[in-house]
């Protein structure tokens, strides 16, 4: 004798949110990251069920949604945060599908009394959506007890508690340093509901990423270039400041520069006409000219900036 109020059409709920499309797109767009995708699915399912429970009145309070993404640079934390915002928005947990991405500089002031208004301003801007704090561990500097970061953390904690319906905070950073950060800020740790760890990409995944990226930019790697890319990845991984997908993007950007230079020189020498295919082809030479192959470090832009 089910009355109307103790049954819910899960199918309709699922379809209305289009959540499957987002998850499928996530599978397509992101190479590797299997555990991350798995967690995203779990969280999405959990949120959908909670939504149903809320509608039936089994659950009274909205669940805590604050998250922590840990992983090395270039493993897709920001990209996943955007997707997560999309999922939360579709399920109605946040009102605006927007992500405000900040770092320590945006939150912490430079003199006494500067921090609180600065942090509050950022929080107000992020309200209704997701606040993504990159390299969150920089907020806490134990070596300097007068650091203003602590003040910022306290305001964040207060907001995370009092405005749970208005704001979702996602902290991101290297795993070990986030661990230290949480150890010294237990209040923060206990308010984070979901920890997601981002693994590094392996060589094959990085090559796949390189292919996807160049396709996105409407470039082709010929088979020689692909082999060169493979070697590049192996060599680059051994070097310091390797930033996973970001290093690949930078390598491709530089290969494009070299390609443009090559075509330019060819044109000057009137060697031949340039076709559309030439314009979008990256050859092995474009990649092998990288300093990584001559034992040097590639590109200053790789030097640390998450």
């Amino acid at each position: 004798m089910a009355t109307k109020s103790d049954k819910i059409d899960m199918q309709a709920l699922l379809e209305a949110s289009h959540i499957n499309e987002v998850l499928d797109k996530l599978d397509q767009d992101l190479v590797g990251l299997v555990p991350v995708k798995q967690r995203m699915r779990e969280i999405a399912a959990y949120l959908l069920i909670t939504k149903a429970r809320l509608q039936l009145g089994i659950e009274a309070a909205k669940p805590s949604l604050h998250m922590c993404f840990t992983g090395n640079p270039g493993t897709g934390k920001t990209t996943v945060a955007l997707k997560m915002a999309d999922i939360l928005h579709r399920l109605g947990y946040i009102r605006q599908n927007h992500v405000v991405s900040v770092t320590r500089d945006d939150l912490v002031g430079q003199y006494i009394g500067h921090t609180a208004p600065k942090t509050k301003e950022v929080i107000k801007k992020a309200m209704g959506g997701v606040l993504f704090i990159d390299e969150a561990y920089y907020l806490y500097k134990p070596e300097n007890e007068r650091d203003y970061g602590q003040e910022s953390i306290e305001i964040l904690l207060q907001t995370m508690e009092n405005h749970r319906d208005d704001l979702v905070v996602i902290l991101a950073g290297y795993q070990d340093r986030m661990g230290t950060f949480f150890k010294s800020n237990p209040g923060m740790s206990s308010r984070i509901a979901h920890h997601i760890d981002f693994p590094d990409y392996d060589e094959n995944e990085l090559l796949e990423i390189a292919n996807m990226m160049s396709a996105d930019m409407h470039y082709n790697l010929d088979s020689g270039a692909e082999k060169a890319m493979q070697d590049y990845i192996l060599k680059r991984k051994q070097q310091p400041h390797f930033a996973n997908a970001r290093s690949i993007r930078n390598a491709l950007d530089r290969a494009r520069l070299r390609q443009a230079n090559r075509l330019f020189n060819d044109a000057i020498k009137h060697k031949k006409d340039t076709t559309a295919a030439d314009l979008s082809l990256i050859t092995a030479a474009d990649i092998r000219a990288s300093r990584v192959f001559s034992g040097g470090l590639d590109g200053e832009s790789d030097v640390k900036k998450t």
Binding site: R95, P117, I123, K124, K125, M127, G128, D166
Partner: peptide
């Protein structure tokens, strides 16, 4: 009271103020 609030997306921030 405080600075004018530019670039806000959601009413919650202003209601908070």
């Amino acid at each position: 009271f405080g600075a004018p609030m530019f670039d806000l997306k959601d009413p919650a921030g202003i209601l908070m103020e």
